[in-house]
């Protein structure tokens, strides 16, 4: 093979379209011809740089939420009748401060004493499923944010007179705190907090998980803490307790990625 035969084949060769025998023949020429080798390297370089330059654009979280919101069936039964519960598709921010609950003083006390003490997610039955389903609904629904990030203090303060438990937002590595709103899980008032990690949305919900039971086979011990990891509808949902509050984390990342996220953000219990 001569250079003039090889040159028109460079693209096809670099694109990996030749079979093994054919490639062998081309590589024989390449090993003997530094000129063509250089051109092949140049083309490989080009392809790699082109990809690097254009990849890494991730679909905006809003787009993702909008598409999934139109595709997935919402779980709205029962909830609409409860006037203390937000309709899932509600478009407007809710009444602020109209929530019955503890006084600000009582909440301050609560958050003071609720030092991050570890409570095992009670092992046993299968009461988690509605919680997991609803956590995914909140994650995929395109609900308006009522308080915007990125300052976690601002969001934690906003919830003070709205929920009856202390809000301590976990700090995730490389995460952008988008904002938060009131939500509900199993007719319990919950805080919904949205993060963006490298273009992937992570939804964290905080709620009172008293009486919440988790199937033992879903429980993993991560850095001394029992965490329930559940895969459903392509989403990974993690449930854990921290400082007497139950946290759900929902995202479409792998279980390993979720584990990584959890071990970096929740310190080991005392």
């Amino acid at each position: 093979m001569k250079c003039k035969d090889f040159l028109p084949l460079i693209d096809t060769y670099v694109d990996g379209e030749f079979d093994e025998l054919e490639s062998d023949e081309l590589e024989m020429h390449l090993s003997a011809c530094p000129e063509c080798r250089k051109k092949v390297d140049s083309q490989i370089n080009w392809k790699r740089s082109f990809k690097q330059c254009l990849e890494g654009e991730t679909a905006p979280v809003d787009l993702r939420a909008s598409i999934l919101g139109q595709i997935l069936t919402p779980q709205t039964e029962q909830q609409d009748e409860d006037e203390n519960v937000l309709p899932l598709r509600e478009k407007v921010a809710t009444k602020k401060g109209a929530i019955a609950g503890l006084s600000i003083a009582a909440i301050a006390l609560l958050s003071f004493y609720a030092v991050p003490k570890f409570v095992t997610v009670a092992p046993a039955a299968s009461d988690t499923e509605p919680v997991v389903e609803q956590a995914i609904d909140w994650h995929t629904g395109n609900f308006p944010i009522e308080v915007t990030g990125p300052e976690s203090d601002r969001i934690e303060n906003w919830f003070v007179d709205k929920v009856a438990f202390p809000i301590h937002l976990p700090a995730f590595k490389d995460a952008n705190l988008l904002g938060a709103r009131l939500a509900n899980l199993k007719e319990r008032r919950a805080a919904y907090v949205a993060y963006d990690i490298d273009g992937t949305r992570l939804s964290v919900m905080l709620f009172n998980g008293d009486g919440l039971l988790v199937d033992t086979e879903n429980i993993k011990n991560i850095k001394g803490r029992d965490i329930a990891l559940i895969n459903q509808n392509g989403y990974t949902v993690a449930l854990l307790q921290n400082g007497g509050v139950t946290y759900s984390l929902t995202s479409d990342i792998s279980e390993e990625k979720m584990t990584e996220l959890l071990s970096s953000s929740f310190s080991a219990p005392e």
């Binding site: 654009e57 991730t58 997935l72 509808n233 479409d252």
Partner: peptide, 22 residues
């Protein structure tokens, strides 16, 4: 059936959304 379809779509199609967007 609808739930099944949604589940399969989320598993097979949704992961390609970023590539489509780019």
């Amino acid at each position: 059936a609808r739930k099944e379809l949604e589940k399969a779509f989320v598993e097979e199609a949704v992961p390609h959304m970023d590539a489509l967007y780019a």
